[in-house]
Nucleic acid binder design. Structure first.
Lengths: 205, 205
DNA sequence: CAGCTAGTTGAATCGAGATTCAAATACCGA
DNA sequence: TCGGTATTTGAATCTCGATTCAACTAGCTG
């Protein structure tokens, strides 16, 4: 028998298991047994904690987005130079590679959002939060005089998030000539025009 | 009994039915019976024409992409002024609204492409074709001296297609403040920087 | 108009996955 | 150590969609 765990702990495990299962089998094509197997449990145990599977899936998506967003905030947290910060922000929004679990899950949702209000809201909220994040970076840079914004910060921020999203899909689909580094360069080409800053990656200390 | 049709005609019907069914129930969550119902047939008849359901789904996606691309080419075909052509090209890449069937289907594939090589190839190919399309517009404008390209045409074209893609997803997810018109404006803001052209929509005759 | 063929139906069967639940068991507190 | 309880199992059952196929029929052909 699988190790017994407290309700709270097990629910966290299950969210993680659902995450993995959805990446393998699709956000909508995933089966209860697949989630149970990922968690090292039987289907009955999963139902014990989540009588309604949909609730688990939504929580898994929600947790995945929080994780994605928190990780980005953490990566850019320590950086003070606006140009460097913008570059790091861009990089942190792209998948590491075609198998990046966090981004894979986000991509799963794009289509479902057209049919499912909850998923649509989750994705829209994430988009808007990322836009705000970029706006902060852009306006700080403008206040310091290192960015000369070609448009209002919201417009630029939206376009940056949009580019990230789209190139994320390309990387996940294994585009032969768009890997994460290439994607960063493409987005930076826009960012340079929009900020008037050359945005050269700093060579380490 | 449903009207009898030739093999070829019926297959076209079924591709259309699969298209509609996938939009309602998801590219991967769709069921044989749902496709049969959309086509006004029974499941047996569908299997008669497509013993392997996957083949039908792939053909439906393929046809949807062809249609999407052909429609764009047709819309921009008659326009000769490069600036106007670019604006129309951008507009033609976005959904009419959240219920646009063509784009809905494309969005369904994004997630699946991470797991399915065939879908990944279809999407990648479409992306590259759209990039070529934009490159032609951009280079023609540059040759006429009305565009001053800030980067090579491939970079700009890729970014334009990426922006379209991403805002397509936003529209489909019913973002409260990004409708098709707003999306066009956002993309145009980038296009102006990249081409050095004010890109003002011509007021019709 | 008779016969043939291809397309379609509908009922039967099959199988996979969801759901239920009594029994088993690990862990906790007394 | 000994209940008591929360968690997990595993088998039984239920449900639904896929698959098969013999019978049926529309439309063509001679």
């Amino acid at each position: 028998m699988a190790q017994r765990k407290s309700k709270a702990d097990r629910r966290l495990d299950l969210i993680d298991a659902a995450h993995r299962a959805m990446i393998q089998h699709g956000a909508e094509g995933v089966h209860l047994n697949q989630i149970a197997e990922e968690a090292g449990l039987t289907s009955g145990a999963v139902l014990y904690h989540y009588p309604d599977l949909r609730e688990l899936l939504i929580e898994a998506h929600h947790a995945g987005m929080e994780r994605f967003y928190e990780r980005r905030m953490k990566k850019i947290g320590g950086v003070s130079d606006p140009a460097e910060k913008l570059i790091i922000t861009i990089r942190s929004g792209l998948p590491d590679g075609p198998d990046d679990a966090g981004v894979r899950l986000l991509c799963e949702l794009g289509g479902a959002a057209g049919r499912n209000r909850v998923y649509a809201t989750l994705l829209t909220t994430l988009f808007d939060r990322q836009v705000s994040m970029y706006q902060t970076v852009l306006e700080t840079g403008a206040a310091h005089g290192v960015f000369t914004l070609a448009h209002d910060s919201e417009t630029i921020a939206r376009n940056l998030v949009a580019l990230e999203d789209a190139y994320g899909y390309r990387v996940i689909a294994r585009h032969h000539s768009i890997d994460p580094d290439r994607a960063v360069e493409l987005i930076l080409d826009y960012a340079r025009l929009a900020t008037g800053n050359p945005l050269r990656p700093a060579d380490g200390p």
